[in-house]
Design a protein around this nucleic acid. Structure first.
Length: 496
RNA sequence: GGGCCAUUAGCUCAGCUGGUAGAGCAACUGACUCUUAAUCAGUAGGCCGCAGGUUCGAAUCCUGUAUGGCCCA
């Protein structure tokens, strides 16, 4: 416990002795700061509007004492405004403010607006109330909080003092609301699926393992929404979507967080062509809503989300860039190219060669591009292409070398699906921990019959990164995964 | 996984070839009735990330380690 905090705690006792509750229960907030700024923008220097009775609340971000008057800055969720207080509030209240209202505290202000001689729109505090006393000091106003580690560990401070961070999270949740509205208007119903699963699938990824005490059995955290959403389609839902967390026990870097948010949607009686159209409309809608245009700049690079997006076939793209045909050339040729690029996969299987070959060329794509028709062996849940059974009716959306979306005409042939699962199981048995698990219940479900269905998944975090020009996924996840600061041997966190 | 960088007061940072740890802001005391990085005078605040080593002496040099960042795979 440092000196500043122990002094503040003593001060709180003094405040209580003065008969003031440092932590009262509520305040009747009637106005938002941004609205006050708009409403009284026409006040001229020195002009006041005593007829307007304002009531605001927020955090004190600066205080400037000026003898028998005090200027201060209040911040609410919409912005900041200057407050002004002088002895007209009453001697006791004036002295109390001077002695005990400090940067970081929350206050409620009742008063009227005026514009100072120097042109600052200000709320004259006819009365005020302390709403919460802080015992830690905020970072200084000039440099703010810049230490990345502190920004992630103490996001509440980052949000408070770095308003661009606060606004980025506001945008994130506006985007999620937009997506919901868009999907609802499109006729989808929002549903839920289990996070705790005995068998998990729908993606090529390593899951988290947890333990269910009640049954004394290990379980997985979901890696995708897919297989349960398709069960809804089997059960008769026409169109469903879910926005929720998925968990993958893999690396952490600027584009991966172990838990992340994904929207997946499934619609009966459509194929991947519908999903391409839907993806284009949804993503360009979000980008335009947030930025006012579909031609944005991401981290200094121009990206054009305007429709229609380019379409390329995976086979053609790799052939054009690396001179190898992923459908017809033998494994040896692929291995040689991978060796030349020092990019051999850990698991020596054809599917992994193809993935690695794609990794070598994906960075050459900048504008949103539909990557089409992935080979069957890397797409165990996608339906075979109607014209070429070696590939699937699948697409990914690639933006600046990053996968933003993944979709296909869903495989609903239960015999083919069983064979695909068996191929995955064989990979799993040979040590591929990311290969998909055999899901007998899912097979049983589609054996009862699943209509032709189109499915789509979009990474919400990635989309928000593009929409808000965020450099890393940690900037769009409010509380990203970061190693704990201090743990003792029992695993309990120690305070500072 | 590899490389580079950072870690010093609540925050942002100085601290040179090794010689008793500094500033600004914040905090605390006081002055000031239109300030806005307010100003002015004063006070207090440090396990120099952690552990070893070299040395008469280490924030500084060396080794290891932790955490974070950036780049590469």
């Amino acid at each position: 416990m440092d000196e500043i905090r122990s002094n503040k705690i003593k001060e709180i006792e003094e405040i209580r002795k003065l008969g003031v509750n440092p932590y009262p229960y509520a305040f009747d907030v009637k106005d938002k700061i941004s609205q006050i700024r708009e409403r009284f923008n026409n006040l001229t220097n020195g002009q006041k509007d005593e007829s307007a009775s304002l009531s605001i609340a927020g955090r004190v971000m600066a205080v400037r004492y000026q003898g028998k008057s005090i200027f201060f800055v209040v911040q609410d969720s919409t912005g900041q405004i200057q407050g002004y207080l002088n002895v007209s509030v009453g001697t006791d209240k004036f002295e109390f403010f001077k002695d005990h209202i400090k940067v970081g505290d929350f206050v409620g202000i009742k008063g009227f607006p005026f514009r100072s001689h120097t042109g600052e729109l200000t709320v004259f505090a006819a009365d005020y109330q302390l709403l919460s006393k802080a015992i830690r000091t905020l970072p200084e106003k000039w440099h703010g909080l810049t230490d990345k580690e502190k920004i992630y560990r103490q996001r509440y401070v980052d949000m408070t003092v770095n308003r661009e961070s606060f606004n980025r999270f506001k945008s994130r949740y506006e985007i999620i609301r937009m997506i919901r509205e868009f999907m609802n208007d499109e006729g989808f119903i929002e549903v839920e699926t289990p996070i705790l699963q005995f068998v998990t699938g729908g993606a090529t990824a390593r899951p988290f393992i947890t333990h269910l005490n009640a049954l004394d059995i290990d379980m997985y955290l979901k890696i995708a929404h897919e297989l349960y959403l398709k069960r809804y389609i089997v059960g008769g839902f026409d169109a469903v979507y879910e926005i929720g967390k998925c968990f993958r026990n893999e690396g952490i870097d600027y584009k991966h967080n172990p838990e992340f948010t994904m929207i997946e949607c499934y619609r009966a009686y459509v194929d991947y062509n519908y999903m391409m159209d839907l993806t284009e409309r949804l993503v360009s809608y979000v980008i335009e809503k947030v930025n006012g245009t579909t031609k944005i700049e991401y981290q200094g690079k121009p990206v054009d989300f305007s429709r229609p997006w380019k379409r390329v076939k995976m086979r053609d793209y790799i052939k054009d860039h690396l001179g190898v045909d992923i459908l017809e050339d033998p494994d040896d040729k692929m291995i040689k190219i991978l060796k030349d690029h020092d990019a051999l996969p850990e698991i020596m299987e054809r599917g992994h060669y193809i993935e690695k070959l794609w990794d070598l060329v994906e960075d050459t794509i900048t504008n949103p591009t539909f990557l089409l028709e992935h080979p069957v062996e890397i797409s165990p849940l996608a339906k075979r292409h109607r014209e070429d059974p070696r590939v699937t009716e699948r697409f990914e959306v690639i933006v600046l070398g990053n996968e933003l979306a993944n979709a296909f005409s869903e495989l609903n042939d239960p015999v083919d699906q069983r064979e695909r699962f068996e191929a995955q199981a064989a990979l799993r048995n040979s040590g591929d921990k990311e290969a998909q698990m055999m899901d007998f219940d899912f097979l049983r479900a589609i054996e009862y019959g699943m209509p032709p269905t189109g499915g789509l998944g979009i990474g919400i975090d990635r989309l928000v990164m593009f929409a808000t020009n965020a450099a890393t996924i940690k900037d769009v996840i409010a509380f990203p995964l970061i190693k704990p600061e201090n743990f003792d041997k029992s695993g309990m966190e120690i305070e500072e």
